[in-house]
Design a binder for these strands. Structure first.
Lengths: 344, 344
DNA sequence: GTTAGCACTCAATAAAAGTGAGTGCTAACA
DNA sequence: TGTTAGCACTCACTTTTATTGAGTGCTAAC
């Protein structure tokens, strides 16, 4: 059986209609609503074929048809038209990015919020943590007798602070000297590179402050080691309450719970270096809990090996075209901004 | 009509039962379930009285009774028994606090999460921002040509950073000098105190760096002025999906939306200096959207004039006893920790 | 190959009947 | 005089039954 032009037109009508209404659609409705120039009986025959070919499904005997995962896949790969962002949407996204331009981590959170707002789906952002990023500047700041703060500026200009707790915290002056020493010696290192050997090498060149250097650096290394590999933020999770797919509170709750599982979200966003926008439909994500959801995701660049991901998650019956457009629209901006930041 | 002992026992039974089951309760059920030594007919008479007195309500003619706001109020003020935290709960809370002891703001977020976990209600935390807190230490850290970070340690040892964007960012060395200058002169100031006059006074004593000082301080003042008065965090909002009161997705969604409105949350937490735990029942909060919810809240101390609030919000039919116990239990710990921190 | 016609299916909706937890009132009892 | 058994009544909720309508597949004619 061959997927001729007419079958494709019918399939497209089914998918578009289902995305819009969330109701199974039948042959007569298609004949009336979409001007295909053929009768409902003919459409019926074609739909029967489409079902045999696996592109659509009948939820029960006397119902209309809905798209199958395979149907969505065809739609996303071949049928869907990307649209440009409206001027208004583009302006909104530009503003969000521009007003957070100095803090990439914060910018990503705000971006997630913006995407959730524009698409009405839930948005997930992963942000690589400092382990792999290179040190641009480190400053130790005194807090009290038992602790000080390490302020870290990475090469991608993320600013983070970590509180470090030590029994014998060096005094302000010593901390200042240590800041300088560490800065002079470890600039452009990544935290991964700071192993025991690097620590002792640095301590050797520290002269009178050797002990303090050792202690501080060990504390620093401990703090960094203890940190998770990636941070995950979500935004707009409450949007799922708007979809008839989740009109059952039990299902909605399960979904909320799933979207709080960090491990699951990490799996969901996956780990690859693709620069393209990826669409994962239904069971393709291999997560039983989310088999009725689709994910549209993309990686953004944080310099070299490091990248984070942004994903939009919604019901399978989501507006792929819109989500892809928004995501690709924003990605262009972000990558440009990040490049400008780390280049400039 | 007098609220005698028997009426109180019956009211207590009604409230306890309703808190547990969320179903209206009738005279026969009370007679069977609670061993009050009187017949259902007698209970019926008493219930009729309780309804006349406004303590209970009949949702419709042939239903049982449920507590009114006035009934809950009586319960909370006179009937409810506070319980001690179990050893396990106490240990859990202590651990949460202890492991975040160095960052009060972070600690409060984690505390909110912990309370939400223990109570299964949504938790709201407000955190006073830096405007009123006193400066313990300030450090300027270079980021790039057009920006630097201001790291701020307050007298309550909250560490925060703000990115400051300036066309002519001073170089590293100058920033270091400025840090020292500002530290020496503005320690124990609050940001509110840094007005134009203070800025120029400081600039006068800056010698060669006068222009840079002016520029940086103006930028700092701008950043601080732009900041909101309080920050609000919520945790466990998804818990509301567990209550039959919100089994309708529309209601749940409205609630989610309400709990994202910062202004509403600020109003909800109110502003007072009470050191007691406060219970706000139903319409008492004067927020139409939340008239079916109750709030249990308390203030925690962040040194002197500054305080934040923690609130637990749930359906009116919430387990007041548990929520009050958990909140008072944790408050003791927190205030002790904060006192130790700023004292030591 | 296309389509009108028809019998059939079945979820969803509506209407009808039945159930049961609840009430208020009355009259008898201690 | 307070307590209680008894009874008729109410009304949300559940179950049952009937109705509707959007959908299908198949067949025969164009």
């Amino acid at each position: 059986m061959v997927l001729n032009d007419r079958k494709i037109k019918i399939l497209e009508a089914i998918i578009n209609d289902y995305i819009e209404t969330a109701e199974p659609i039948g042959s007569r409705t298609i004949a009336k609503k979409y001007d295909l120039g053929i009768s409902s009986a003919t459409i019926r025959n074609e739909m029967s074929d489409l079902e045999d070919m696996g592109f659509i499904i009948q939820p029960h005997a006397s119902a209309g048809r809905i798209p199958s995962d395979k149907g969505y896949r065809l739609y996303v790969d071949r049928l869907m038209r990307r649209r440009e962002l409206t001027e208004e949407e583009a302006r909104f996204l530009r503003r969000v990015i521009a007003s957070n331009i100095n803090q990439i981590d914060y910018m990503m959170q705000e971006t997630a919020r913006a995407i959730a707002l524009l698409t009405n789906y839930a948005t997930i952002v992963s942000e690589p943590t400092v382990k792999k990023t290179r040190i641009r500047h480190i400053q130790f700041v005194p807090v009290d007798e038992r602790s000080f703060a390490m302020v870290l500026v990475t090469d991608s200009k993320v600013v983070k602070n970590h509180i470090i707790y030590m029994d014998n915290t060096p005094d302000e002056e010593t901390l200042q000297k240590l800041s300088k020493l560490v800065n002079d010696n470890l600039r452009d290192y990544s935290f991964e590179d700071i192993d025991a050997e690097a620590v002792s090498r640095l301590a050797a060149s520290a002269g009178e402050n050797k002990d303090a250097v050792m202690a501080v650096l060990h504390a620093v290394v401990n703090v960094i080691q203890a940190e998770d590999d990636v941070q995950i933020y979500t935004s707009g999770v409450k949007n799922i309450l708007s979809f008839p797919e989740f009109s059952d509170v039990g299902k909605a709750k399960a979904m909320f719970q799933a979207l709080e599982e960090k491990d699951m979200l990490i799996t969901l966003l996956g780990k690859n270096h693709s620069e393209k926008i990826q669409v994962v439909i239904g069971a393709e994500n291999n997560l039983a809990l989310l088999e009725d959801c689709s994910v549209i995701k993309a990686n953004y660049n944080v310099g070299g090996q490091n990248f984070g991901s942004i994903g939009v998650i919604g019901p399978k019956r989501m507006d792929y075209s819109q989500a892809v457009s928004v995501l690709s629209g924003i990605l262009k901006h972000i990558n440009a901004v990040i490049k400008a930041l780390s280049g400039g």
